[in-house]
Write a protein that binds this DNA or RNA. Structure first.
Lengths: 188, 188
DNA sequence: CGATTAAGTTAGTGGCCAATCACTAAGTAG
DNA sequence: CTACTTAGTGATTGGCCACTAACTTAATCG
């Protein structure tokens, strides 16, 4: 039995939650599964967080923040096309090496839409704020040109969805996208 | 009590399932909720479909098919920029008037990724095939130019995600989009 | 009519799951 | 050593949910 500070445990819980929620989404993931991955009893999660929803929220926030960091670090000291290529390559590398990151992102989008429809705008505001920080992180290096940034984000979203659907790297749908380093897709 | 043929009932079930799964996703939607919306007892669903998964699959397939139809009908008899405008406008109209369609699309993407990760490639193959039909439906009217089609789909995906996150129509993130619903319109 | 078929129901089962409660064990300060 | 704090557990509970089995009602047709 390894004792940790509550803060450290919360950190482990967030990381575990990102992996578990990525696969099953909010409803498809049990707190039991998260606890098991952390190596802690299930009821203890409710000492660290007020409820399951709070764990999901923390995982979503962390996911957005990590994505922002990828852009910020990749574009450091670069501008224009160089920054664009660096960010695109870094992002491709991210979702290729850690598909959970991509999945958690999609789970976040789906969950926020459901929350908004249910009248809960707190989650939505957090996600929109986090997304805008990602947007800004891309906007400045790209020369603060709105339509350029929009295009960049649009291609990113297409890459997300194509990866999620499991189109193999050789499929024609990938033609016309930056070919730098594609995720190794599923079948077909 | 209104009796219908099994085929007609299946049809109602699919429509109801699209709405319910759109909100809650696969795990967040009970067969009870679907049955209630159809106006039929919950166990009867299992006479019409082999299981919950089959219902979700049918709803996903229908959703893809309907999206394809929107593109096909909007672009009928048009080519190039005119087709692009018509398809973009029709799609915007679709997700504005019926947010469930958008939500169900996202649920499909999330579910297919989970299924692939779990080793179930049957669902993935269906979705990829359906998505390719949408892609083709846009590809030909746009002049069979791959990069044009890719860009078109990319903007569509960004629109999906921005809508899902609930960004208001006045937000800056939409700036580069409405005008560049014709991103290649005469320039570039 | 009576028989057959197809549409639909009521009742139930086994399993899972978020959250609570009461408790134990490990540090730590005086 | 004692008193106190903080990390962590075991047992439980009330509720939901996918799915099954057995029965009932309505249409169809010779």
């Amino acid at each position: 039995m390894v004792r940790m500070s509550a803060e450290e445990r919360r950190e482990s819980v967030i990381r575990a939650a990102m992996s578990e929620f990525a696969r099953g989404g909010y409803h498809g993931t049990s707190t039991e599964a998260i606890a098991k991955r952390v190596g802690v009893s299930q009821p203890y999660l409710f000492r660290l967080f007020p409820g399951k929803k709070a764990i999901f929220l923390a995982a979503s926030a962390r996911c957005l923040e990590e994505t922002r960091k990828v852009f910020a670090e990749a574009s450091e000291g670069l501008r224009g096309d160089e920054a664009l290529h660096a960010m695109a390559a870094a992002y491709m590398r991210l979702i290729a090496s850690d598909p959970d990151k991509l999945q958690m992102q999609l789970q976040t989008y789906v969950a926020v839409a459901a929350a908004e429809a249910a009248g809960d705008h707190e989650f939505g505001e957090m996600v929109r704020a986090g997304w805008m920080e990602i947007w800004e992180a891309a906007h400045l290096p790209l020369g603060a040109d709105v339509s350029e940034t929009t295009t960049f984000m649009a291609y990113g979203m297409l890459i997300n969805i194509l990866s999620a659907m499991g189109f193999s790297a050789e499929h024609r749908v990938w033609e016309g996208l930056y070919q730098s380093s594609q995720p190794q897709g599923g079948s077909e």
